[in-house]
């Protein structure tokens, strides 16, 4: 803290290298995460006809819920951007508020997803039903897991912000979580397009 104050004149530069290096490290993690999702997408696309005479997505997927969760995640990506803007203005209250809104939207997305999975399992589409459903649950579930981790992480950052305020360190953390949140929205666009839209068309 003291360091941050004494550096307040030039901290943009002194911390810039350290913090932006850490931010770049996180960017590289996301690059590897892209490759993870690439393999899961490839698996799903390749196995989408292997339904073992069982149910397929087109029969069971309820698009209304999917459309709602798509717009929820889209809005939450937007609000995490607003959090970043508040931070750049030095507005701690606004920052915490928008982060909390993003986390809550993420939570409702997960709620809808869990409900959807329960509905699918009740209709007889378990992960063991066919290669199609194994690939489906692995892909969509991995994305859901990422969002769930993001919610816990965001909550931790909110607590840290409330305690320590906006410092170069918390600033970097907010930058990273917001990047992660945009990334999850980008992945969901492809889940929505390649899994859901192509399934029901």
């Amino acid at each position: 803290m003291a360091q941050a104050h004494s550096h307040s004149h030039s901290h943009d530069h002194g911390h810039h290298d350290q913090e932006s290096l850490k931010q770049f490290g996180f960017w590289l993690f996301m690059i590897t995460d892209v490759i993870l999702f690439a393999t899961l997408f490839a698996t799903f696309i390749v196995l989408r006809d292997n339904t073992a005479s069982g149910p397929v997505g087109a029969d069971l997927i309820e698009m209304n819920g999917i459309i709602i969760s798509t717009f929820i995640l889209l809005t939450s990506s937007f609000t995490s951007g607003l959090a970043l803007l508040s931070m750049n203005k030095g507005d701690k209250r606004g920052l915490i508020l928008w982060l909390a809104v993003s986390a809550l939207l993420g939570l409702s997305f997960i709620y809808l997803e869990v409900n959807e999975f329960i509905h699918l399992v009740h209709e007889g589409a378990k992960i063991s039903t066919s290669a199609y459903w194994s690939a489906f649950y692995t892909l969509v579930g991995t994305h859901g897991l990422h969002v769930s981790i993001g919610i816990v992480w965001m909550t931790a950052i909110i607590i840290q912000l409330a305690k320590r305020g906006i410092t170069p360190v918390t600033k970097r953390k907010v930058n990273i979580i917001s990047l992660y949140w945009h990334f999850l929205d980008a992945v969901w666009i492809f889940v929505f397009s390649l899994v859901y839209l192509m399934e029901v068309m």
């Binding site: 960017w27 892209v34 393999t39 490839a42 698996t43």
Partner: peptide
């Protein structure tokens, strides 16, 4: 660096996805 590593990721992504579709 961000853009370059992203282009790398997209290259790998397209190779995995299109390659898998092609083979299968």
């Amino acid at each position: 660096y961000n853009l370059i590593s992203l282009i790398f990721a997209v290259l790998i992504l397209l190779t995995i996805v299109i390659g898998s579709i092609w083979i299968m």
